[in-house]
């Protein structure tokens, strides 16, 4: 499947990655090459095959519903680009 620049722009938006308008055609052509490679999968008969969810047969363990951690505000915020008054700070979200 060939990807056009509109689709490339839309995917970049969904991925929240800013791509300059003049870079979109090259990106679209890279996507087309990769998707062309992926499309070999259409040759495989997958009728009745279950999609894999876990590569090793296992049941996820349940842990006890108890508090095991906490009181680490300083550690949690230590790497934030902008932390103020015990919170992560971000640009205004709601007008």
């Amino acid at each position: 499947m060939s990807i056009d620049t509109d689709t490339a722009r839309k995917v970049a938006k969904l991925a929240r990655i800013r791509v300059q308008e003049d870079a979109l055609p090259a990106l679209a052509s890279e996507f087309s090459a990769i998707l062309g490679f992926i499309e070999q999968l259409n040759e495989v008969d997958v009728e009745g095959v279950e999609p894999m969810t876990s590569v090793t047969p296992q049941r996820l363990k349940r842990r006890d519903d108890v508090v095991t951690d906490g009181d680490q505000q300083a550690a949690v915020l230590a790497n934030a680009p902008d932390a103020r008054e015990g919170f992560f700070a971000v640009p205004k979200v709601v007008e």
Binding site: I3, T7, A8, V11, A12, L14, A15, I17, V19, L27, E30, F31, I34, L35, I38, L41, N42, V44, V46, V49, E50, P51, M52, T53, V55
Partner: peptide, 29 residues
């Protein structure tokens, strides 16, 4: 960036079955 966007595309509405689920079935095989 390229891989994140390819991943976004194969998981997006309308392509999830054609790409992602098909790939997971091939993985089973």
């Amino acid at each position: 960036q390229r891989r994140v966007m390819i991943g976004t595309y194969v998981l997006s509405a309308g392509f999830y079955d054609a790409y992602y689920n098909r790939a997971r079935k091939v993985r089973t095989l």
